[in-house]
Design a protein around this nucleic acid. Structure first.
Lengths: 335, 335
DNA sequence: AGTAGAATAGTAAGCGCTTGCTTTTAATTT
DNA sequence: AAATTAAAAGCAAGCGCTTACTATTCTACT
């Protein structure tokens, strides 16, 4: 293995000089030295040993993203945002996967990144167990949750889930719909509950109280959508459905088609997320779109501030604006 | 920061002992010592500094996957396979993204993993530039390309692209189709050329020479499928289409629908990849399915052999079996 | 009781790099 | 030409861990 010592010997300078040249420390050497060192490094095929550097610096320019493999597929967009913004500041990105559910696997993933001096940790749609959250906090490494909100103190950047539920429902209400289902959301965590609250609020504004069967829970998956629509049945009195995710929406859509219903004429559907999936089905799905890319960008900025010792954002909880993207799956109610 | 020295002091043993206990080195200490050390570690909230360990060991149990953000979405399955198999052997997985096209970004991604002593590198659908391939080889780190074949010496695990093209086409031929298009593949790299060769071979067997317009190139994206079908037109004499990817197939499908054609009655479509996308469209897409999960598993095994100094697999090029998954997008030709 | 030999534990070197401090060299001033 | 100062390079410690080697116990057998 080629080390800075080898370069130093070849060039005839001290290792410290090589280190400084390669590290671009200003005002320490002549242009000539720089040239010689760089050349030698190239010729010898030198590769920096980051482990050694990180050991002494106790710091690195690596951002770690911990991603849960979720049913719905928006992680890619967040990562694009992270990647882009990270590159802007010269940060590198490494990603580790962990199934959201299993605390043991979560822990393993966390450990992978905590055991090295990463500059910060971004957690994408991860519902960390209490133990693991403690672990994370104790590590002293800056972190921020992305795309998922919480009702405790921890820092996150996400959409406002209640607003999502509200806006989606309101959109249908404004089109004249009154009998509106909500399909595929999970009741347990924050996300599902908040969206449901928004849904109820929008209905309450027009004095509608949802029947119990209007709300079909699930896990944001395509199958959940299928199942929800099966529950509603082919001659449901529902004229509109809010789907908890794009995949749920597609499930609802396909099952509706299977029932011989036409969308949007017989049934209006609005999805949540606004991923590219919305555009590859027919009709294309109208959706409440989350700005995942921006979450990624904001996450990096957050980490950067934390890295710069700006403690004011330590536990900041931030919402990224949502918007309605009109495509073709909603039409005015005829009733 | 808590180090093994702190634990050693607290327990009253030497740091070396702590290191050995925590590293589970056999036959070096009493059960009592183990207990004390473990307890102290827990109580102090000790976290291993992997940088330090990797510095001395010049090795780690981390597998790195370099992933290009491709249009078509099978990387997830490969990663599942890697993850699963890695966990089996106690390896950790880190992933870095790189847009396949840009050599500079590729290089940055490669450097991120080369500069630390990862145990091996898996490259998912990455067409590395020559420079970067050299870099990779020089690093001495075991590596293997996944899901993409090459016509040079480098090691890879993928499907047999010629067979894919052949089997897909043959499947339609066997259903009586003779006028068969091939949509959305790129002509330039290995993959596209080989699949095309397979396509031509299957047609040649029934003495059909494809018209030039039958082959519509693209980039495996949904848009490519849309475009290809637009080229074919609503009253094409084609009765079947092989799509270069599932997304292309969906594009073809939707455009066909837009033309008022019925699938599979008016047009049969067979996709390539067999991702979950096949099941969320109507009709569901018959496809040549690649076993991406298995590629991931095999990749880890390959790395493991290399790690165990089994040089016999150094440049091994391996094919993973494909299969036809029949769904609903192909019907017999009526001609 | 003495001692060989196994079982445990300790000592210390060193992995490759960064960086505070010191020394040397060059440039500038008087 | 000597003295002052600035620029450039070197010295050396040390980051936290592993491991070959050495030292100390403990056990068991003559």
């Amino acid at each position: 293995m080629i080390t800075i010592k080898d370069i130093a010997k070849r060039v005839g300078v001290a290792p410290s000089t090589v280190s400084r040249v390669l590290g671009n420390k200003a005002d320490f050497y002549t242009a000539e030295t720089v040239e010689k060192v760089r050349t030698a490094a190239r010729e010898l095929g030198y590769k920096k040993n980051q482990s050694a550097a990180e050991l002494v610096k106790q710091h690195s320019n690596v951002i770690a993203a911990v991603v849960s493999s979720v049913k719905t597929n928006f992680a890619g967009e967040i990562i694009e945002g992270i990647q882009k913004e990270a590159a802007e500041y010269g940060y590198k990105l490494i990603i580790v996967y962990s199934h959201s559910a299993d605390p043991v696997e979560q822990r393993s993933a966390l450990m992978t990144v905590i055991e090295r001096p990463v500059m910060g940790i971004l957690l994408l749609s991860m519902a960390l167990s209490d133990d693991n959250l403690t672990l994370l906090k104790e590590s002293q490494i800056p972190f921020c949750f992305l795309s998922m909100g919480f009702d405790d103190e921890r820092p996150f950047i996400s959409s406002d889930d209640e607003e999502i539920g509200y806006r989606a429902t309101k959109y249908l209400v404004d089109k004249g719909h009154r009998h509106i289902g909500f399909a595929g959301l999970d009741q347990y965590p924050n996300t599902g509950r908040l969206r449901l609250a928004g849904y109820k609020k929008a209905l309450a504004e027009v004095s509608v109280t949802p029947e119990e069967y209007w709300v079909q829970s699930g896990d944001y998956s395509y199958e959940s959508g299928l199942k929800a629509m099966q529950q509603y049945g082919g001659k449901t009195d529902l004229t509109g459905v809010v789907a908890a995710s794009d995949m749920v929406a597609i499930g609802v859509l396909n099952q509706a088609h299977l029932f011989g219903m036409r969308v949007p004429d017989d049934l209006s559907i609005i999805g949540i997320d606004g991923t590219e999936m919305c555009e590859i089905v027919q009709p294309q799905l109208t959706s409440v779109s989350q700005d995942f890319y921006k979450m990624g960008v904001a996450g990096v900025q957050r980490l950067r501030q934390l890295d710069l010792k700006d403690q004011s954002v330590k536990n900041k909880q931030e919402f990224v604006p949502i918007k309605i993207t009109e495509r073709g799956s909603v039409s005015p109610s005829l009733n």
